[in-house]
Simulated scan of single mutants.
Amino acid sequence: PAEGKGAMQGVSYIQRLATRGGVAPSVDCTTQNKGARQVVQYQADYVFWTAK
Rank of each mutant, 00 (worst) to 15 (best):
G6L: 06
G35L: 03
R20M: 10
S12A: 05
T50M: 11
N33G: 05
A36I: 07
G10N: 03
V23W: 04
A7C: 02
S26V: 04
A7F: 05
R37M: 11
C29A: 15
A51D: 09
V27I: 10
A44I: 02
V11A: 02
G4V: 11
A18P: 01
V27M: 15
V40L: 06
V47M: 10
Q15G: 05
R16P: 00
K5H: 00
S26T: 15
P1C: 09
G22D: 06
S12H: 13
D28K: 13
S26C: 00
A44R: 11
E3N: 04
Q9S: 13
A36C: 13
T50R: 14
L17G: 07
Q32E: 15
Q15C: 07
V11N: 01
Q43N: 07
A36D: 13
A24E: 14
V27T: 11
D28E: 13
T19Q: 15
G10V: 02
R37E: 15
P25S: 05
G4P: 10
T30M: 05
T19F: 03
P1V: 01
V40I: 14
A24F: 07
T19P: 09
S26H: 02
A18Q: 09
M8G: 12
A2E: 00
P1M: 02
G6N: 04
A2K: 01
A36T: 11
D28C: 06
S12I: 03
P25Y: 01
V11D: 00
V27D: 15
R20P: 01
Q41G: 15
Y13W: 10
T19R: 14
L17Y: 08
D28M: 06
W49A: 14
S26E: 13
S12F: 01
K34H: 09
V11R: 00
G35Y: 06
D28V: 09
S26F: 02
A51K: 11
G22A: 04
K5C: 02
G10T: 09
A51G: 13
F48N: 02
S12D: 10
M8S: 06
Q15F: 07
A2P: 02
Y13G: 02
I14D: 00
A7P: 04
G4Q: 04
K5F: 09
R16F: 08
A24P: 12
A36S: 12
V40A: 10
A44C: 13
R16K: 08
K5L: 08
W49M: 14
Q32V: 13
